[in-house]
């Protein structure tokens, strides 16, 4: 099976050529197949967020190549990268990043606004996703009327709305208590198993990482360990 994500000799340097040059990623090679559930773990400053930003096309590597679905992403324009991001990747953040002025349903619809989907189709799809994350009864609620776990469910529904093949989750349980965190991980597992989504989870919580099929450990910008379960 062809990998959906393939990183070849990826490096990321900040302040390149200056006295304060910082190498965050160093010669990272990583291949992730479609439908895998991968956890990336590592201490703070190990480069896991930078790696996620590169995989999520929010950032560009200094060196190396990144193939997404077989296509070299370095050849794409900024506009195309935005469009690919909207269609193929769903983001889930630690702090949910829901827009406070609009209700849960409208928050879920947000990625569809940029695909040009008509309003009725957006609303129907968002409602369907809220049902999937068991939040349909809160569709009209605003983020400040929801608990942390509920907010993250809405954020997961938002990540799924354009039916992306990859879900990128950056510390999705970091702001939640352990019980709620486990429920959120159950949801990711369900998306992975029942909806065949490739899930990449960044965490520093070993218990949460242990539920993934594959655990990649980063240290000082390099992959230092890989474990399959």
């Amino acid at each position: 099976m062809k990998p959906i994500i393939e990183l070849k000799n990826i490096s990321k340097k900040y302040y390149e050529g200056k006295d304060n040059q910082l190498q965050v990623l160093n010669d990272v090679n990583l291949s992730i197949k479609s439908g895998e559930f991968v956890a990336i773990v590592g201490a703070s400053g190990s480069g896991k967020s930078t790696l996620m930003n590169i995989i999520g096309l929010l950032d560009q590597p200094t060196n190396g190549q990144y193939f997404l679905d077989g296509a070299d992403t370095s050849q794409q324009s900024q506009k195309n990268l935005s469009l690919i991001r909207g269609q193929k990747i769903g983001f889930v953040f630690q702090t949910f990043n829901l827009i406070g002025r609009i209700n849960a349903l409208k928050n879920v619809e947000l990625p569809m606004l940029y695909t040009g989907a008509p309003p009725k189709q957006r609303a129907a799809r968002a409602q369907q996703l809220l049902e999937l994350v068991e939040m349909s009864d809160r569709a009209k609620h605003f983020p400040n009327e929801l608990s942390g776990g509920q907010k993250q469910r809405v954020a997961i529904a938002r990540a799924m709305v354009n039916d992306p093949s990859i879900i990128l989750a950056d510390e999705p349980t970091g702001a939640l208590d352990s019980t709620t965190g486990r429920m959120i991980i159950d949801l990711f597992l369900e998306l992975n198993r029942r909806h065949n989504k490739t899930v990449i989870l960044i965490t520093h919580d070993a218990e949460i990482a242990s539920r993934a099929q594959r655990i990649i450990t980063l240290k000082d910008g390099q992959i230092v360990g890989e474990e399959r379960q």
Binding site: G56, L58, Q78, K79, S82, L83, R85, G86, Q87, F91, F93, N97, I99, L110, P111, L113, Y114, T115, R158, N162
Partner: peptide
């Protein structure tokens, strides 16, 4: 600012 970051992450182009 965070909202703008979120919008970009979910697919908004600079022009959007």
């Amino acid at each position: 600012t965070r909202e703008i970051g979120t919008r970009k992450a979910v697919g908004a182009t600079n022009a959007d």
